[in-house]
């Protein structure tokens, strides 16, 4: 239990530090947000970006996922099945 209390205290310390930093920092943002964000759809813009600017990372990501899939299957397959 003592260790959990220490863990909690450390987490709180970290939270306090980060929160303080967040609060005290002046964030550079656009001057004015578009009105009524919900009206706009960003799906299309994202789709365009993925298939134009970020197409190579996207393809690499697919390979990563495939690798992870194969790896997971290999690791997790049961010995009994053999």
């Amino acid at each position: 239990m003592i260790s959990k209390a220490i863990n909690g205290a450390v987490a709180l310390l970290f939270l306090a530090v980060v929160a303080l930093a967040v609060v005290t920092t002046t964030w550079i943002t656009v001057d004015e947000l578009p009105q009524n964000l919900a009206d706009q759809s960003n799906i299309e813009a994202i789709g365009v970006q993925i298939f134009t600017q970020f197409v190579i990372p996207f393809e690499v990501l697919s390979l990563v996922l495939l690798g992870a899939l194969i790896g997971a299957v290999y690791i997790a397959k049961s010995e009994v099945e053999k």
Partner: peptide, 13 residues
Amino acid sequence: ATAVIAGVGLLII
């Protein structure tokens, strides 16, 4: 990990 996090926190302070 606990020590590292505590250390980072203290360092920042």
